[in-house]
């Protein structure tokens, strides 16, 4: 059901079935397009990969065959020969630990971003004061300040969570600032004409009208935090999915590296999908102000 897209209403043929039910042939065709096409491309990719690996153009360390990666996936997901997962932790646990870091880090960054955005969007001089700094921060690759965070905060959880927070902060701050500054003056006036106080106006007009943009910023922020994950777990990242990738890379364990990368990518896709759905449910008024 989730794969059925909201297609632009097809011109109804003369013998169209009653509205509400899409013609079955059409429905099948869209189902095919939205399920079979991605699956087909995945299959093709696997075949090409297998062919490439089998041709031995590169050594197995560089391009392991899909089966090896699958074996690695099973290995790190289960207990085998008395060894639990990778380095004593299963794949799902690595992922869980990383997701918790992201939740904490990005959560902090997002909260700070919303607060700064609200302040900067409403108070002009605060915006002038902070905007250059935020832009500066945004252009820095997370790795650039990671070393600094290690020096300041050690090698435990603090630098990792801080890195993710710092990475997630700018997109939310920027999108919220823009959205708050662009709140329709007409609606603010309407609220004031009804007797709203300044605080009422912020809560009932500014926040909801900025929410769609802020949610887009949050989605961006989670994406940025996600792509900073491996960086955040470069030092003392085990357990953690990024730490696992880094550690496996140290031993030229390409299959596990690939398993880690795929796990990060797939979980990222799932989370982005969830956020997208949240956006649709939470702000049905998007684009209607």
């Amino acid at each position: 059901m989730s794969t059925t897209p909201s297609l632009a209403k097809p011109a109804a043929p003369a013998d169209a079935p009653p509205p509400g039910r899409r013609p079955p042939r059409h429905r099948v065709r869209t189902r095919v397009r939205h399920v079979a096409l991605p699956l087909g491309s995945l299959l093709l990719f696997l075949v090409l990969w297998q062919a490439l690996a089998a041709s031995h153009t590169w050594s197995e360390t560089l391009v392991p065959p899909p089966a090896k990666v699958w074996d690695a996936f099973v290995d790190v997901s289960t207990t085998h020969d008395g060894v639990r997962g990778y380095n004593g932790t299963t794949l799902i646990e690595h992922l869980g630990i990383s997701l918790r870091r992201i939740a904490f880090g990005a959560g902090l960054g997002i909260a700070a971003g919303v607060v700064f955005g609200l302040l900067m969007g409403t108070v002009g001089w605060l915006r002038s004061l902070f905007e250059p700094w935020i832009t500066f921060l945004r252009t820095l690759p997370p790795l650039a300040y990671f070393s600094l965070l290690i020096i300041w905060l050690g090698i435990d959880e603090e630098p990792k969570v801080t890195l993710l927070a710092v990475a997630a902060f700018p997109p939310v701050a920027v999108s919220t600032t823009t959205a708050v500054a662009a709140v329709p003056k007409s609606l603010v006036e309407a609220a004031r004409a009804l007797g709203a106080s300044r605080w009422d106006t912020v809560r009932d007009v500014v926040v909801p009208s900025a929410l769609p943009e802020t949610l887009t910023g949050i989605r961006l922020a989670v994406g940025v935090a996600y792509s900073s994950l491996v960086a955040a777990e470069l030092v003392n990242g085990l357990p953690g999915i990024g730490g696992m990738v880094k550690d496996a890379a140290n031993y030229n364990n390409t299959p596990v590296v690939l398993v880690g990368i795929i796990a990060i990518g797939v979980s990222g896709l799932v989370i982005d999908g969830l956020l997208l759905r949240l956006e649709r449910v939470a702000v049905p008024w998007r684009g209607r102000t």
Partner: peptide, 18 residues
């Protein structure tokens, strides 16, 4: 003062879409 003086109906409805 706005909100005290009068009820206002603007030229456009200005309803809150959320």
């Amino acid at each position: 003062r706005p909100g005290e003086a009068a009820g206002v109906v603007f030229q456009t409805p200005r309803l809150f879409p959320w």
